[in-house]
Design a protein around this nucleic acid. Structure first.
Length: 275
DNA sequence: CTGGGCTCCTGTCAGC
DNA sequence: TGCTGACAGGAGCCCA
């Protein structure tokens, strides 16, 4: 589910409310992608700091009497966070609770590809290891055409897969990679290294533009994405190609095509997007 | 080092 | 109605 916009929208929806809260207790459901890496009891009494985001990861600093560090959280494919004043009984797919004096932060994640991992700090393992190798943030001024062009150079993989890899620029998952390539008029199958400088400039702007508009739209809600207060996103209304196989391109009327790249669906307009 | 493919897990939907 | 297979918003890991 969640790509950068959904994670950022989620972050904004509860960061302020949870800041300075005191952890009362925590609860784990079924195993997530990795073990927490800390006895649950050690979270109690901790003070929550400012929630930040790096790529699709959220960082919740917690300074407590017993443990000092934070929780690195990832929503995986089907995760979402809810922050609410009272605590209903956990459902089958609620696999992590952080009960604070200001409310309950709960991770709902049916597929359990998500993760909540304790780390002594962003510069300390395991967080450092998980974040190592991430590309620039799309809204970082250093992320521009030349940076993208340099990152793509020497790569034989398709440009779409290079975007998804996240080591040049983070945040574009399957939906937004497809949408950015459409906006830039680039065929997703084009070998990364073959993208010209001007087109790399265009693509960098498209990545930034699409992700920015998606954040503004509250993310994309295909089926179940909600922010921490249960509000759905609306970017799906703006999608030009994602999920539109066989439907006419809004620009030229050509049927949108679906192909598979790296075991994942790619949607594109064979007329508007060129190699 | 790069690139390709598999894997984790559950739910939903199309087709028979 | 019930079963089966395809597919789903991610990304770490292993192997060639």
């Amino acid at each position: 589910m969640p790509e950068l916009p959904e994670v950022e929208v989620t972050r904004r929806s509860f960061a302020e409310a949870i800041e300075n809260a005191t952890v009362l207790h925590a609860r784990l459901g079924k195993p997530l992608r990795w073990p927490l890496g800390l006895p649950l009891e050690e979270l109690a009494g901790g003070r929550v700091g400012q929630v930040t985001r790096r790529g699709k990861y959220l960082w919740l600093p917690i300074a407590g009497p017993r443990a000092r560090g934070g929780l690195l959280m990832h929503l995986g494919m089907s995760g979402s966070l809810a922050f609410s004043a009272h605590a209903p009984q956990p459902g089958t797919h609620d696999h992590f609770d952080l009960q604070t004096d200001r409310g309950l932060l709960r991770l709902h994640d049916p597929r359990r590809f998500g993760a909540v991992v304790w780390s002594a700090g962003l510069d300390a393992d395991p967080a450092a290891k998980l974040l190592a190798g991430l590309g620039l943030e799309p809204f970082d001024p250093r992320f521009d055409g030349p940076h993208l062009h340099a990152g793509l150079s020497g790569r034989r993989v398709a440009v779409k897969l290079a975007l998804l890899a996240g080591d040049i620029v983070v945040g574009a998952g399957n939906i937004y990679a497809c949408e950015a390539l459409f906006q830039a008029g680039i065929d997703p199958r084009l070998p990364a290294a073959k993208l010209s400088r001007p087109r790399a400039e265009k693509l960098a702007q498209a990545v930034r533009g699409v992700l920015g508009r998606a954040v503004d739209a509250g993310g994309t809600t295909l089926r179940d994405f909600r922010d921490a207060h249960g509000v759905a996103g609306s970017f799906q209304m703006q999608a030009q190609v994602y999920g539109r196989e066989g439907e006419p391109c809004f620009t030229c009327g050509t049927p949108i095509r679906r192909i598979v790249q790296g075991q994942r669906s790619t949607f594109f307009c064979p007329h508007c997007q060129k190699k």
